Structures are given as structure tokens and as C-alpha cells.
Simulated assay, not measured.
Amino acid sequence: MFGRKNKETETPVTTEPEVTDRDPQAGKGAPTPKRSVQQAQNKRPLVPSDRKLSKEQKIKEREERQRQFRLANETADERYLLPKDRGEQKRFARAFVDARYMFSEYLMFVLLAFIIVALLIQDISVQSYITLAMWAVLLITVVDTLIMTRKLKKRLLEKFGTVERGVLWYAATRGMQFRKLRLPKPQVARGEHPQ
């Protein structure tokens, strides 16, 4: 068992015949280049020679992007809008929000006025009333936004059958922006509700 193997039971090992008539230059066809030659081939300039061309190209591309961005924000053309603004439901939500009068679009101005008054008047009792008024304004804003999103959801379900994910949040954040600063710019007048 652990002893020598019998010569009869051993399997013969087959070896391939050695090739003796190989040409020594057949593998590469050329001598190995020196290290200095190889390193010189790998060197590239740190500053490319066509740098001015690429600067001009970048300026043209930047101007084209800015033109498309302005065009998209002024006309709300779907081709040029950012991905977050594209879609039939988001267009409807924009029109729905832009047609409404919303308290939340004046939130920043009201809060800024409260902060200025609180800084000017150092009376503790007045500042406590200002703090309560700020909380009341925030509560009114939340209620106004909830009412708007519920109405929008109802209208989206009537028109499209489903509500895409993120459309209601998109409408709520748009409603908190001052109307003249909204992007894309409003395409409907106040009171001109979408059908």
C-alpha cells in the first residue's frame, strides 16, 4: 500500500516533443529598446499644446449651457429643463401652485421682519410675543401647504390616475418660493387654474 509502485500499474507520462528548429528572433522581431528610450516614449507634456483651443471650447460650451438654462427657465421647454423639473405631472403641479395665492411664499419675508423687530426691541415680554407669532406663522404655513398638496393630489388623481413620487414635495417647495424667484418661471397668471 505505502510501498513502491509497480512499474505495470504506473501510467506513462506523455511529453510533447521539443522544438529545436526555432528561430531566436521569431518572438519579437526587434531587439529590446534601452530603458532611456522607453522612458522618453512614455513622457508627455504637463501642459497640453492645444490648451487655448480647449479653453475656447469650454467657454462656448458654458455659454451654450447658460443659453439653454435661460431658455428652459423662461419658456419651461421640456427639452432644456433639468431632470427634476421634467414630466407632465410636474408641469401640472407648477401651474397649480403658480395659479394660487399662497401664504407660504411670503414666509421668509415675515420671519426676517420678526427677527429684525426682535433684535431692535430688547424687551423680554415683546420678544416672547414675537416668538409666539413666529410659531403661529409657521403653523399657518404648514396648514396652507397641506391644504394645497391635498387639493393637488386630488386633481392629479382625476387627471392622470396616479401621483408620481416626489410631485407633491416638488409642489410644496415651489409654493414656499417667492413667485418672481421661481424657476422655471410661472407660465400662468394668478387665478388661471390648469384644467
Rank of each mutant, 00 (worst) to 15 (best):
L53R: 11
F92K: 08
G87L: 03
E64P: 00
Q57A: 04
Q89M: 14
L46R: 12
R65G: 01
A93K: 04
K34W: 02
Q38R: 12
L81M: 01
A76Q: 08
R35T: 11
A93C: 05
K52C: 01
E61G: 04
F96D: 09
S49D: 12
P83G: 04
R44T: 13
G87M: 01
Q57M: 03
E88H: 11
S54H: 11
L82C: 00
R67W: 15
P83D: 01
P48I: 02
D98N: 14
S54G: 02
P48Y: 10
K58I: 02
A93N: 00
R65C: 06
F103W: 10
L82P: 00
L71F: 14
Y80A: 02
K84V: 03
M102F: 10
R70N: 09
G87R: 01
R35M: 07
A99H: 07
E61F: 07
R70G: 05
D77H: 07
Y80D: 00
R62D: 11
L71P: 06
F103G: 12
P48L: 04
S104A: 15
A76Y: 06
R51F: 12
R86V: 05
R35H: 02
Q38P: 00
Q57D: 10
Q39R: 12
Q39E: 13
Y101T: 13
E56P: 06
F92P: 13
A76C: 11
R67F: 15
P45F: 00
K52D: 07
R65W: 09
R62V: 07
D98H: 05
A40S: 13
D50Q: 07
E78K: 02
R51I: 14
E64T: 09
R65N: 03
K58E: 01
K55Y: 12
K43D: 04
R67G: 09
K58D: 03
E64A: 14
Y80W: 15
Y101A: 13
R70T: 03
D85Y: 02
R100Q: 14
R35F: 03
M102E: 08
R62P: 07
A40K: 14
P45R: 14
P83M: 06
Y80C: 05
R70S: 09
E64F: 00
Q66K: 14
P83L: 08
F92G: 06
K90A: 00
S36Y: 15
S54Q: 10
R67S: 13
A40R: 13
L81A: 06
A72H: 01
N73A: 00
V47N: 08
S49I: 12
T32G: 00
Q57F: 06
S54L: 10
R79M: 05
K52V: 05
Y101F: 04
S49C: 04
Q41E: 14
A40F: 07
D77K: 03
A93M: 05
P48E: 10
Q39T: 11
E74R: 10
K43Q: 04
E78Y: 08
F103R: 14
R35G: 10
